[in-house]
Amino acid sequence: MQIEKELNMLSMRQILYGKINFIEGEEYRAFQFRFLNILMLAGVVVTSLLLVGVAIGANTIDPLHVVSMSIFLALSLSLWLALRGRPQRFLQLAWVYECVCMCEYISALYMVSADELRVIWFFTNIPGVYILLGQRAGLSITLGTMLGLALGNAYLPQPYSINAMATLLVALFYLGTFFHVYGARSISYFVRMRESNQRLRHLATHDPLTDLLNAGAYYASCDQLIHLAQRNHQNFSVLFVDLDHFKKINDTYGHEAGDHVLKSVTKTIVGVVRHSDAVGRIGGEEFSVFLPDTDLAGALKLAELIRHAVENLMPVVGNQGIRITTSIGVATSNQTGENMAAIQRRADQAMYDAKQLGRNRVSCFTVDG
């Protein structure tokens, strides 16, 4: 029952908004996009009901304004269809919709003089502008609306009294000021929360010493990359990099020197690999590198580059350079259904083979063993 309900909700969202995907950190943009979709549809529904009322004689509206309402209805529906599933069009269509709405409100102001409350549409417009177009647009539209009402009142078929106009202008100014301050605080709060969440997420997924992905985040990322590689029928490889005799470095020079060595090695590995590769610290002196779209020959070449770069690193502790070497295991696969744990075990075995063969070398483990 719950699954069916969730499927129905998903289907309804796709009808309203189309198939859209917002990345993490775009929550406010997603809200704006959905809000504009709902606003356009609400305009379509409300205008349709008013036109039905005119058709059955429930209310009387100037024929010219009926034409204006019909145009507004058609444009609102067209803009919704143009926006649906296309968030990249949001800003342009939001401005177009605001212009369409203002034209409709002005039409109602001049052609529906029997309705004293028709001016309320200008008030309902202000919050939407601040939400959809931001503070500058909100302030500009608020001041423009106030100026337009003040100057245009004398030309209305039934002008508002001086007292009524003064009340309208003060209320518009208050409403604009309220949303200007509230919008600024809300966006500031959202930005701080997003940055705080990003920092917390980074702390949860990265090693505090080297700033590489920690083991959990690294393996999760690799499983996603493997899924993508298998879907595209691409090879992928894994390097298991282990520093030789690292315990001796800690015992001889101290843990602070060991941390310095790990940071230096990290910088070296990151400098050698490609931007598309994933690097993680999966143990004390153990690193793993996932190489998408890389066959065995390419993986061995990159592993040799890393081994050579680390050997020539010679980080200085005190006044003394420390020679560091690595043993690197290489495993490659294009097997359907294989997960990261399986290929990592083979890379791990290849690394131990490198250790057994004398360290400071690269050893490979193929699918055939």
Rank of each mutant, 00 (worst) to 15 (best):
Q344T: 11
H202C: 06
Q158N: 14
I162D: 14
L300V: 12
R231V: 00
P157K: 12
V289F: 02
V96L: 11
Y17E: 02
H275C: 03
F123I: 00
L243W: 02
C364T: 09
T210S: 10
L10S: 13
Y174G: 03
L169C: 11
V96Q: 03
Y17V: 03
S76Y: 14
N214M: 11
V54Q: 05
R323E: 10
D293Q: 15
A150Q: 08
P208N: 01
I226A: 05
L239N: 03
D259C: 10
T266P: 04
A299Q: 02
V100K: 03
L77P: 03
H275I: 00
I71F: 12
N8T: 06
L209E: 08
S363T: 05
F22E: 02
T205K: 06
Q320C: 08
G134N: 04
F236I: 00
I71M: 13
L143C: 06
T167D: 12
F173S: 08
F123N: 04
E338Q: 15
K267V: 00
G254V: 02
M193G: 00
A297P: 00
S11Y: 11
N37K: 07
Y97G: 01
M146E: 06
I56T: 12
L302I: 07
P157C: 08
E304I: 06
E256F: 06
R346C: 06
T167L: 11
L50F: 15
R118F: 02
A297F: 09
G254L: 04
R361S: 03
A171V: 00
A229M: 10
Y182N: 09
V119H: 13
M146I: 08
M1R: 12
T336A: 14
A341E: 11
G298V: 04
N250W: 01
R307H: 06
V241S: 02
P127L: 09
S333L: 05
M12G: 05
P87Q: 05
N153L: 06
M12D: 10
L10C: 06
H260R: 11
L300M: 15
N334R: 13
N214Y: 09
Q2I: 02
V44R: 01
L73C: 07
T124L: 14
V272L: 09
W121T: 08
